[in-house]
């Protein structure tokens, strides 16, 4: 296995970069989109709430693999050719937006109304309330959930291998078929994913500890 690692680490590293790139961009796009969907879910407009509900229900209620294939083939049936990487990022972003919106929704509705009233009575402006009162608390509440969503997203990104995006899983498949050593190849991929999970878990602990001690400052 070490020999295989020695031979193939440039390819695996390349795959790791692709995994992080695709997941990272999808996570970032999913953030504003998720906030928008959460905002719509808490909106006064019935149509907005309904649209938000349907969106979340579809993207959370169907397999990511099916979503990915639909996003990849849909433009093709209109004669448009989309690069697999682009389709992968779009599908993952639309998916994580739905899951992130649930996190934002829970985080925003968790702050007691009394706190905001108290702030208003003390003469704080709406912007001050958002920045000083709501955001710090909401971030603290949502961060653990966001980190586990990031991990879920990275795990989901393994499926973009089916549309030939050369991330870790795809690279491991290539190595497996070139070397005829599937056990070793997939074990290396497994180790790569576990390493990402460990780093994310560590980052989560670090951030949580900082938030627990220092607050927003």
């Amino acid at each position: 296995m070490l020999a295989m690692l020695h031979q193939t680490y440039p390819v695996l590293l390349d795959g790791l970069m692709m995994t992080l790139l695709v997941s990272g961009i999808a996570l970032l796009i999913g953030c504003p989109l998720g906030l928008l969907i959460a905002r719509a879910a808490l909106s006064d407009s019935r149509a907005a709430r309904w649209t938000s509900g349907i969106y979340r229900s579809f993207w959370r209620g169907t397999p990511i693999l099916v979503q990915l294939i639909i996003v990849f083939y849909l433009p093709m049936s209109f004669g448009l050719k989309v690069a697999p990487v682009l389709a992968a990022i779009v599908a993952l972003a639309l998916n994580t937006a739905a899951f992130q919106s649930e996190i934002y929704r829970a985080g925003l509705s968790a702050i007691p109304a009394g706190q905001l009233e108290a702030a208003r009575l003390l003469g704080l402006t709406r912007a001050q309330i958002l920045v000083r009162i709501e955001a710090p608390q909401a971030i603290r509440l949502m961060l653990p959930a966001l980190i586990s969503e990031a991990l879920a997203l990275i795990k989901n990104s393994s499926l973009v291998s089916v549309i030939a995006v050369t991330e870790i899983t795809r690279r491991a498949q290539q190595i497996a078929s070139a070397t005829f050593h599937p056990l070793e190849a997939y074990t290396l991929a497994l180790v790569a994913y576990l390493a990402i999970a460990a780093v994310l878990a560590g980052a989560g602990l670090l951030v949580e500890r900082r938030l627990a001690h220092g607050g927003s400052r």
Partner: peptide
């Protein structure tokens, strides 16, 4: 638990289905 929660299912399936025969 950490192994199962940190790994994508597709990798676990590949290990069992394609890697299994070598053991």
């Amino acid at each position: 638990v950490e192994l199962m929660r940190g790994a994508p299912l597709v990798i676990l399936l590949f290990l069992v289905y394609y890697g299994g025969p070598s053991v």
